[in-house]
Structure formats: structure tokens, C-alpha cells
Design a protein around this nucleic acid. Structure first.
Lengths: 218, 218
DNA sequence: AAACGCGCTTAAGGTTTGCTTAAGCCGGAA
DNA sequence: TTCCGGCTTAAGCAAACCTTAAGCGCGTTT
């Protein structure tokens, strides 16, 4: 865990730096300019941002960071306790806003929240070769490109990719498509697989004769 | 966006409920037991949790929720202002901790933080192509021009844009519009989407057959 | 070698899903 | 009350999708 502490006050900065150092790796900078250069260079997990800096306003910088699609959690730590300041800070893209003076323990707890959320955001994603599947968003990707599938094709491919490169029986696939009850007595599965092969490339779905199919990672 | 408000105090609860209702869909419950049953039934985006409930401690429940891998953002709203309480609340799995009395505007801003983080983004302004959404002012813009939407259209588009360019299931959208209980058994969703397409341009909302819809960036 | 079985490939219906319209309904504002 | 905007319903229509079926190729069995 790697934090960037942006705080111009020497005493407070020192105290915070010592406190944080006990738990994390920390860089401490004292103005916007070095904050920017540090931020551009290293990859921080959380930034603690003071607002009253000598060479500019932290909120403005935060805004431009967010506009650039920067996603790093930011905790504003400041003496500005006005309601407008707090709302503005949060609406600008800060993840939390702590008013000085504060309890060190609370700061640490709030940092833990941000770190926890950051790590908890990893979503299950399956991949075989350059084909990947984001189950939550219902999307397949070939390389970086999302590909669009018909419902049946989607179901088939979802089962295949979750099996990794292991073969999947045609019964399993048929069951996925139609449930248990009514058997569709035809060659539908093959037709859909054919459609998939056209999209993914002929050799990405290997047929396991007499058993089923298997995804291959190219 | 769908909130669960857990607050036993009748006056405060009422005030909060009214406040929140202006911006989100809200369920308000007054004890742990109904909080649990509501939580098990519906799929909330954020929960506001009071700690001093008549039939148990909110923190204990929160702990068990987190132990069960529940990921819903939780904002604790309570009169307990001790440092230990705050640290414990946050370390138990709360995402934020607001001490009563508080400013309504700050509560709303902190809810916005949780909602946008939940959607995986730090930016307070959502954008897909030239369509953008300012969460704080509840306004949509096409380019620079603000556009006016009916309530239902607004709700739909808000969900879509917060998903970025990822597909959103029609169930999710229907739930957004009507909640779980009362099913509107009709093609309302499609009609509203049609309305949106007329405003935004035909191809800005892509239909994902058999699943739902997806916003595309031009 | 010949016959068979399994799976591939196509194209033609048939079905389902979603789009589009327009009309009626409801609730709030004038 | 009437008027108005927005919501829902329903019906016709278009497009996407699914299934069927028939012919073909290839490996396996007889």
C-alpha cells in the first residue's frame, strides 16, 4: 500500500507522515507542483490531499485529475469546514472529507475504508487466450473489442469459458440452453457452435468427438 | 438508484425520507428486523444505517452482512460520536460514518460519493460520448446543451450512463422504475427507450437482444 | 473398400423479441 | 372543473433469432 500525502504545514505534515509510515509506504510533498509530478510518476493507492496549498487549490487539481479519468481514491484533509467546501470537495471527486483537527485513529480507519473498497472492486472475469468474459456486465471480449452474440450463443460460450480449456459435454450445453424438460431433438447446438466459430475463428472451439466441445486458447 | 434507510426516530426518519425521496427511490424501515427482510428481498444501491435501533445493534448486523460477502455500500448515520464508535463502525465495513446532527447537503454529497464509487468511477460527472450527467444537479447534457427528460426517462438514462458503455439488463431497469413487487406487465420500458432514442439519436442506445440495453458513445 | 455414424454447413421457414404508433388513463396544475 | 404532460396499454409490424432438414465430408468400423 502506497500513499501520497499532500500537506504543506510542517508540523502536521511531520506528524501525519510518522503516523502513516507505521502502516504504509508514504510519500510526503508540500505543494501542488511536486504533488503533480509525484502523482504522474508513481502509482499510489490513496492520496491524502490538503486544500490550502501555497501554489494552488487542491480542488481544482482534483477536478482535472478526475476529468482525466484518474480513479485513485482521494481523501481530503483540510481546515476548511464550511458546508459548501465539504459538498464541493466531495462532488468534485473526493472519496472522503475530513476536517482538521481530527483524530489520527479516525484518519487511519477512513484510509482503511478506501483501501478495502479499492481491492474489493475486482470483478470475476474469465479468460481463455485472448477471449474474455465479464460475467457481471454480460459481455465477451476478443482482445479488447466487445463482441456481440445472440442469446443462445452467449449461453453456450459462457459455459465453455467457465470451464476454461476443459471439454464440456454436449448434454451440459443442451441443458444450459433448454433446461431439463423438453429436449429439442435436432442439431441446434451444432448450428450455434458454427455461428460462434465464425465469430471467434474456426479453431477456437475444438470438437471433442462423441463428447462435446472445448475452448482453446489459440 | 435505490436506497434503504434504517432509522427508528420518527421525526428524523420522516425528514430524511422526504429529503431522499426527492432524489432516489427509498425504502424506510424502523428496526433491524424489517431492515433484514427488506435487505434480503430487494437490491439496494446504498444503505443508510442508524445504530441505536430498538431491536439490536446495527454494527453487529453490518458485520454479519460483510461476513456473508455482501458488498452494498453502507453509510452509518448515528448520534454515537465517540472515536471508538467511529473507528469500529468503519472497520466493521461501513463506507462512511456521519454523526448527527448533520447537514442534509453533506449527507446527499456523501451518498453521491458512494453511488459513483459503486459504479466503478471516481468522476462526479458521468459521460458517454457527448452525453453527460451531473449527478449533483441531476442534469443531463448533450454536448453543452441541457436536455429535459421525463422522470422515467431520467431514471433509465441515469442507470445506463452510470454503467458507462456496459450493457444493463432490462430487469435492472425495470426494478429501477418499479421496484420488485408490482410488476408492470407491459412494454413500458421499450416505449421509454424509444422516447430516449428520439432525443439522443437512434443509435445511442443499443439493444442487447435477450438482455437489455447499452449506451454507446456516438 | 464400403458402409456407417458423427458432426459440419447451408438455407428456408417459423417463432420470438423488440420497435413503433396511437389511443386512453391518471394526476397535478390552472 | 378542465387542461396538460406523462404513463401505460395494445396492436401491427419489422427484424433478429432459432430450428429444421437435407446434403456433404471425414474418420471409424465392419
Amino acid at each position: 500500500m502506497f500513499l501520497l500525502l499532500v500537506e504543506d504545514d510542517l508540523n502536521l505534515g511531520n506528524a501525519l507522515f510518522k503516523l502513516l509510515k507505521q502502516h504504509y509506504r508514504v510519500h510526503w510533498v508540500r505543494n501542488l507542483e511536486s504533488a503533480k509530478s509525484h502523482f504522474a510518476t508513481a502509482d499510489y493507492d490513496v492520496m491524502l490531499l490538503d486544500l490550502g496549498l501555497p501554489d494552488g487549490d487542491g480542488v481544482d487539481w482534483l477536478q482535472s485529475l478526475r476529468a482525466d479519468n484518474c480513479n485513485t481514491p482521494v481523501l481530503i484533509v483540510t481546515a476548511r469546514d464550511g458546508l459548501d467546501d465539504r459538498v464541493k470537495g466531495l462532488d468534485t471527486g473526493a472519496d472522503d472529507y475530513l476536517v482538521k483537527p481530527f483524530e489520527p485513529e479516525e484518519l487511519l480507519a477512513r484510509i482503511r475504508v478506501l483501501l478495502r473498497r479499492k481491492s474489493g472492486r475486482a470483478q470475476p472475469r474469465f479468460a481463455v487466450g485472448n477471449l474474455s468474459f465479464a460475467a457481471d456486465s454480460h459481455q465477451f471480449f476478443l482482445g479488447d473489442e466487445p463482441i456481440s452474440l445472440s442469446p443462445k450463443e452467449h449461453q453456450i460460450l459462457a459455459v465453455l469459458i467457465q470451464a476454461g480449456e476443459k471439454p464440456v459435454s454436449r448434454e451440459r450445453l443442451m441443458q444450459q440452453l433448454y433446461g431439463l424438460g423438453d429436449g429439442v431433438d435436432s442439431n441446434t447446438l451444432e448450428v450455434h457452435v458454427y455461428g460462434l466459430r465464425r465469430l471467434l475463428g474456426k479453431n477456437r472451439i475444438e470438437t471433442v468427438r462423441g463428447f462435446g466441445y472445448r475452448l482453446v486458447g489459440e
